[in-house]
Amino acid sequence: MISTDFVSRTESLPGIGNSPEFMNAAFEQREKSPPDQVQLPQGVVVYEVTAIKPPATPTFEEIRSRVETEFKNERVAALLSQKTKELSDRAKAEHDLKKAAKEVGATVKTTDFVLPDGQVPDLGNLSGPAAVIFSMKPGEISGPIENGNIGAVLSLLEKQEPSAQDFAAKKDQIRDSLLQGKQQELFGLFVQNLREQMQKSGKIKINEDEMKSLSRSQAPEEG
């Protein structure tokens, strides 16, 4: 269970990350209402609003602390995106995800067979960005996948085709999951490529010293 101080709609929460869907649900809840739940890509989150603080002009120290926190979160997110893409690129170049993961210090995890509506520990619901795994062939390696504060690169070891009866019962759900996963993967690649182009053109600059200090505590998942 995680408890937080007062937060705004745009803040990032531990274990959830930046989730407008969760924040919208939480901010519609009344103070001290019974616990409620919301479905997120990484799983079901049960929450309770224990107190509501009316809007007020923040003090200088509150603003400073918030800016520092948001800046750090942005840098961590950028580093996670960078490291996850590096892992994906290296794994595809070497045709070996386990070897690439070992070289960059990423964690290697393997799961049993899962369904499109199943969940994977740490990665969450496979109807989210990780749904791309169901469109892959055995031996293929995915692009970078980001799910909240988790970065992952997937490799399909084996695929077990469903029976005709199972497929007929879930074909619409499977199609929607695959489409959603592909769209999110393409958007992630677009954002990464745009960032690289802006860096090359000098429109944005990365503080390498800070990125190195943050990298000591950040490493992507591999599954």
Score class of each variant (00 low, 15 high):
residue 107 T to P: 00
residue 107 T to A: 08
residue 109 K to D: 14
residue 109 K to A: 12
residue 111 T to H: 08
residue 111 T to G: 05
residue 112 D to E: 13
residue 112 D to N: 14
residue 113 F to T: 11
residue 113 F to A: 11
residue 113 F to V: 13
residue 113 F to W: 12
residue 114 V to N: 10
residue 114 V to Q: 15
residue 114 V to D: 07
residue 114 V to E: 13
residue 115 L to E: 10
residue 115 L to P: 01
residue 116 P to I: 01
residue 116 P to E: 01
residue 116 P to L: 02
residue 117 D to G: 13
residue 118 G to Q: 03
residue 118 G to R: 02
residue 118 G to F: 01
residue 119 Q to N: 11
residue 120 V to E: 07
residue 121 P to W: 10
residue 121 P to F: 10
residue 121 P to Y: 13
residue 122 D to T: 12
residue 123 L to N: 06
residue 123 L to G: 04
residue 124 G to F: 06
residue 124 G to M: 05
residue 124 G to T: 06
residue 125 N to H: 08
residue 125 N to C: 04
residue 125 N to T: 03
residue 126 L to F: 02
residue 127 S to Y: 00
residue 127 S to W: 00
residue 127 S to M: 10
residue 128 G to R: 00
residue 129 P to H: 05
residue 129 P to T: 08
residue 129 P to W: 02
residue 130 A to R: 04
residue 131 A to I: 05
residue 131 A to L: 05
residue 133 I to P: 09
residue 133 I to R: 08
residue 134 F to K: 08
residue 134 F to L: 07
residue 135 S to E: 14
residue 135 S to N: 11
residue 136 M to R: 06
residue 136 M to E: 09
residue 136 M to D: 07
residue 137 K to R: 15
residue 138 P to W: 14
residue 139 G to R: 11
residue 139 G to Y: 13
residue 139 G to W: 13
residue 139 G to E: 11
residue 139 G to M: 14
residue 140 E to K: 07
residue 140 E to P: 07
residue 140 E to L: 06
residue 141 I to D: 00
residue 141 I to S: 01
residue 141 I to K: 00
residue 141 I to Y: 00
residue 142 S to E: 02
residue 142 S to K: 03
residue 143 G to I: 02
